[in-house]
């Protein structure tokens, strides 16, 4: 297996960009950034719906419970793309 430790892939890298490389993160920034980037549950109301990710299993459940199926079908999975 190729190792990636200490291996800088510098294919066509250019000096100006390398010189402008952002500074390293410290532990305090790391912790704050995790909290800032992760979604706010108040804006994620779609997660309150018990979505299934299997159309066939949803079909079986709908037949069993006597309910219609609501299918959210997108190019890019609605539950995990964007």
């Amino acid at each position: 297996m190729k190792s990636f430790v200490g291996l800088g892939i510098a294919v066509l890298a250019w000096p100006a960009a390398a010189a402008a490389q952002p500074p390293a993160l410290d532990q305090a920034q790391f912790t704050k950034l995790l909290a800032v980037i992760k979604p706010d549950q108040q804006t994620e109301k779609w997660q309150q719906i018990p979505w299934s990710s299997s159309l066939w299993e949803a079909r079986r459940q709908a037949a069993r419970e006597g309910k219609p199926i609501l299918l959210w079908e997108m190019d890019g999975h609605p539950l995990g793309c964007v």
Binding site: I49, P50, W51, S52, S53, S54, L55, E57, A58, Q61, A62, E65, K67, P68, I69, L70, L71, W72, E73, M74, D75, G76, H77, P78, L79, C81
Partner: peptide, 9 residues
């Protein structure tokens, strides 16, 4: 009222 499911087209 529904069985909700999501899928990637």
């Amino acid at each position: 009222n529904f069985v909700a499911v999501a899928a990637d087209d």
